[in-house]
Design a protein around this nucleic acid. Sequence first.
DNA 1: CACGTTATTGCAAATCACTTGCAGCTGTCA
DNA 2: TGACAGCTGCAAGTGATTTGCAATAACGTG
Lengths: 149, 149
Amino acid sequence: MTGTERRVAGFEGQLREAGLRMTQQRRLILRVLAEADDHPDAKGIFTRAFAHDPTLSLSTVYRTMKVLETQGAIERHAFEDGVSRYEHADQEHHDHLIDIDSGEVIEFSSDAIEELQRRIAAELGYELVRHRLELYGRKKPPGTRGKKG
Amino acid sequence: MTGTERRVAGFEGQLREAGLRMTQQRRLILRVLAEADDHPDAKGIFTRAFAHDPTLSLSTVYRTMKVLETQGAIERHAFEDGVSRYEHADQEHHDHLIDIDSGEVIEFSSDAIEELQRRIAAELGYELVRHRLELYGRKKPPGTRGKKG
DNA sequence: CACGTTATTGCAAATCACTTGCAGCTGTCA
DNA sequence: TGACAGCTGCAAGTGATTTGCAATAACGTG
């Protein structure tokens, strides 16, 4: 998987630049993150990584996530259940739609909504720094796409 | 404060209707909530209520908040720090803008953004059930209101 | 490549917000 | 007023995340 290789290498470089060490554990966690196409929480990352290195500890996962977040290498999200979920940050900004029934997380982005948020903040006298937008929805029966309820 | 009186009475009615008991503790907590114009967390509510009744316990606050939320009498929000904050629900739907520097929470509502969210969900094949939108911003210097950065 | 710093790790204990088991107390309603 | 189910305070329990500490392992240097 070349994309993954590249991502891990990229993360490594970022760490090196910050004077941080590239340990076996970090390399492993980075790989797990790069290969993930979902939004795993710490325990999920730990489980996947643990399969490759049974000496890894959960606290190392938490510490690594914090380092990576500080480095801007990953993004942390906390949806309704409150647990932190992570995803690599080498992608365009996006928000999340959560399927209420399945828990599935779908990514989307909308320039219109970004702009609208900026404008709303401005109207209140604020400069928008960041935001959190999560939609919680239920799958429509097929054939209703785009139609009005 | 007539508004407060009315709110507490309203809450009481709601509880009664649901076959729940109106205890001294609940009455007190309701009053605290009705008088609050901010978004206190459980500890904050406890502190305010405790001043009027030093026998009150924090678990009663948590239990009461859960009951009130179930009754739809209050709304619970969890901003970036993850702790649950509460506000009474006898008001129009709104979202929140959080001042990054002061922590102040400003309420706002936008039909445009509501509609946009509904449309985005629909385009993804979902019916929007609820959402969470928080803007995090920094106060602009006066005189820049509405201008573009 | 061996060595010394010093970051990093694993483990266990500690936090923090919130929940719950339990026994006694108190609204409610007949 | 009396019974009874709902409530409450207290203390212990959860579950996610953090932290103190001693051992370990990166990484630059010689």
